[in-house]
């Protein structure tokens, strides 16, 4: 091992630090959306996405997930608000939708 090898280690650590500053994600949280017991979407909580479901629209943005609109009377899922923690879920019974953070 040459002493110059430490430059490579230092450069690599610098790259790691730069990425850490640029993308300070708080972990590998993913959103799994199921409708009628079938998984229709799985993706990172940090990948912005508008998931069009049968009747509902789910939005994943900046590490939070919420139901934007729903075609039903009570709108329980819309009123659930934003979820971001592991284990939290948004459930729409009329349209049989479950969005869960894992």
């Amino acid at each position: 091992m040459k002493w110059r090898d430490f430059y490579i280690i230092a450069a690599a650590l610098l790259i790691a630090a730069v990425f850490l500053c640029l993308f300070p994600g708080s972990g590998g949280k993913t959103v799994t959306v199921k409708q009628n017991n079938e998984t229709v979407y799985t993706g990172s909580l940090y990948t912005d996405k508008e998931v069009k479901l049968d009747g509902n629209t789910l939005v994943i943005k900046d590490g939070v997930c919420f139901m934007k609109s729903a075609e039903c009377k009570n709108k329980v899922c819309v009123h659930t608000g934003k979820i971001s923690k592991k284990g939290e879920s948004i459930i729409c019974l009329p349209n049989r939708i479950i969005a869960q953070i894992e």
Binding site: A16, F23, S44
Partner: peptide
């Protein structure tokens, strides 16, 4: 999978350093 996976870069870089060290040795 989109840019969301980029938060994982530091973990991969550090694991690369450790594994590279092992293989190099």
């Amino acid at each position: 999978f989109g840019g969301g996976v980029l938060y994982y870069a530091p973990v991969l870089v550090v694991s690369g350093i450790v594994c590279g060290l092992a293989l190099g040795t």
